[in-house]
């Protein structure tokens, strides 16, 4: 967890918008942020419908063999997703298009607070805000961090999870 530890990162998986050029010459990403973005709540996404296939694919991918996530509930014959399933629902969020040089960001960590189960048939809406930016230095040089917070809500209006995504820009 130490800032000293960052050697390398999984790169962010953001597709550049059409026509958008990667900006260059910037030393410190946060300086390029529009300060009004901090704390701003971005538009809600269209709800994502969680299918049985999505849960099965996810379980297969992480080797999840727990019957609690692989077998439908005897009560309603629906599957329940493993808690970590929540981290993969963030794809369509518009917030990423507001991050400067977002195509150069690396995922530095995630913090998932899991409040209620996500189940087959749920329609999950995401709302995100830019929470924090800060700088530090590590093995790979100077790093600027951006923390985005996503809140996931189901079709009944219940908050099912908060996720903080930490991204780092190396200069």
């Amino acid at each position: 967890m130490s800032s000293d530890e960052y050697d390398s990162f999984e790169s962010g998986r953001f597709e550049p918008q059409e026509g958008r050029q990667a900006e260059s010459g910037s030393e410190q990403a946060p300086e390029r942020f529009d300060p009004s973005l901090l704390g701003k709540l971005f538009d809600l996404t269209e709800p994502v419908t969680v299918t049985a296939q999505m849960i099965r694919d996810y379980c297969a991918a992480i080797g999840e063999d727990n019957p609690a996530y692989n077998e439908p509930s005897p009560d309603d014959q629906l599957l329940t997703a493993p808690p970590s399933f929540a981290v993969l629902l963030k794809r369509s969020e518009k917030i990423y298009r507001c991050m400067p040089r977002y195509d150069e960001a690396f995922a530095a960590g995630q913090d998932l607070e899991y409040l209620a189960p996500i189940r087959e048939g749920d329609r999950i809406t995401l709302a995100s805000s830019m929470r924090e930016t800060y700088e530090k230095t590590g093995r790979s040089g100077k790093m600027s961090f951006v923390v985005l917070r996503s809140t996931l809500t189901n079709q009944r209006g219940e908050t099912v999870a908060h996720i903080d995504h930490r991204f780092v820009y190396r200069s």
Partner: peptide
């Protein structure tokens, strides 16, 4: 993160214990 979450949920087994939070840092 998913694999470390599974380490915890496997340890919990199928009782009342639930994973409420997990935070990870990808160092390398």
């Amino acid at each position: 993160l998913g694999i470390l979450a599974k380490l915890v949920t496997d340890w919990l087994g199928s009782g009342s214990g639930q994973l409420a939070r997990i935070g990870t840092t990808f160092r390398s």
